[in-house]
Design a protein around this nucleic acid. Structure first.
Length: 110
DNA sequence: ACTTTGACTATAA
DNA sequence: GTTATAGCCAAAG
């Protein structure tokens, strides 16, 4: 088994493990990888997630405030919000309601 | 090879 | 509550 140890691959592996109806943050994922200061790279990885071999639920990854910072990367600005609401995560004004309640910590639950 | 950019976060004022 | 600044590191120009 290849077991990718690259930064991007680790990000992808964690992202695809985010439970449906839950959301996580770039910082939390970065921390889970071992580079708590590389939250930006997580975002960049998400942008590249569509090039990855497997589908990545990038819409479940938000910034620390629960804001849909990368909604534009989904082709349509409303697509990300719709996907989240479809999974049971209410979004209002480009921000997840009760983000703390839906937050999923890879370090805590993985 | 250098500079700029970016789906971020933490701290300070 | 907001705005400003610094730290961070890989990809793109």
């Amino acid at each position: 088994m290849p077991e990718e140890d690259s930064f991007f691959d680790k990000v992808f592996q964690i992202c695809e493990q985010i439970p449906r109806g839950r959301v996580s943050s770039y910082g939390a994922i970065a921390k889970a990888i071992g580079s708590p200061q590389s939250a930006r790279m997580v975002g960049w990885a998400m942008n590249k997630s569509f090039s990855y071999s497997k589908p990545i639920p990038a819409h479940r990854v938000l910034n620390r405030m629960g804001m849909l910072s990368g909604k534009k990367a989904f082709g349509s600005p409303d697509m990300m919000q719709r996907l989240l609401e479809q999974e049971g995560v209410p979004v209002e004004n480009d921000q997840v309601v009760d983000f703390d309640k839906y937050f999923w910590d890879p370090l805590l639950e993985l």
